[in-house]
Amino acid sequence: MEVSEDDNIDIHDISPTAWRLLRVAAGFGQREVEVEIDDIMQAHISMLENNNRSLSEQRLEVLFELYRSELTNEQVRVLVSNF
């Protein structure tokens, strides 16, 4: 699922800043994400948001869905397209 069905968002095109803003807007701290999603550690989130490393496609999808579940489609679209 590279592309979100709602807004045609390619998860590989989301910037590190947008990933951080999505997380914060969804109300998650890095440690909270670690608790919510198996196989994702705080270090993974930090590396993704600091553009040091990307996550596997599966992890990106799960992470994006977690954030998206807490936000409206418009919020997601605005954060991803503007940052």
Rank of each mutant, 00 (worst) to 15 (best):
V78D: 15
F83K: 12
F64M: 15
Y67M: 13
L21H: 02
S46N: 14
E49T: 00
T17C: 04
Q42T: 04
E36T: 01
R53L: 15
N73E: 12
D7G: 12
F83L: 15
W19S: 05
I9K: 00
Q30N: 08
Q58S: 14
N73R: 12
R23K: 07
E2R: 04
G29N: 11
I40K: 00
E74I: 13
M41G: 07
I9H: 00
T17V: 13
V3S: 04
G27I: 03
L60G: 00
N73G: 12
R77S: 08
D6S: 04
E70F: 00
R59N: 15
L79T: 02
I40D: 03
E2M: 08
P16N: 08
I11M: 07
S15K: 11
E49P: 02
R20A: 05
V80H: 04
R23N: 01
D38A: 06
I14E: 04
S54P: 07
I9C: 01
V78M: 14
R31H: 15
A43K: 10
V33K: 01
N50I: 02
A25M: 11
L79R: 03
E32L: 10
H12L: 10
R68I: 03
V3R: 02
M1E: 15
G29Y: 10
D13L: 12
S69R: 09
I14K: 00
L60V: 00
H44D: 15
R20Q: 06
N8H: 11
L71T: 03
Q75W: 07
V3H: 04
N52L: 15
E74V: 13
S46T: 09
S56Y: 05
A18F: 02
I37W: 01
R59C: 07
I45Y: 03
L55I: 00
I45M: 13
D13V: 02
I40R: 02
A26N: 15
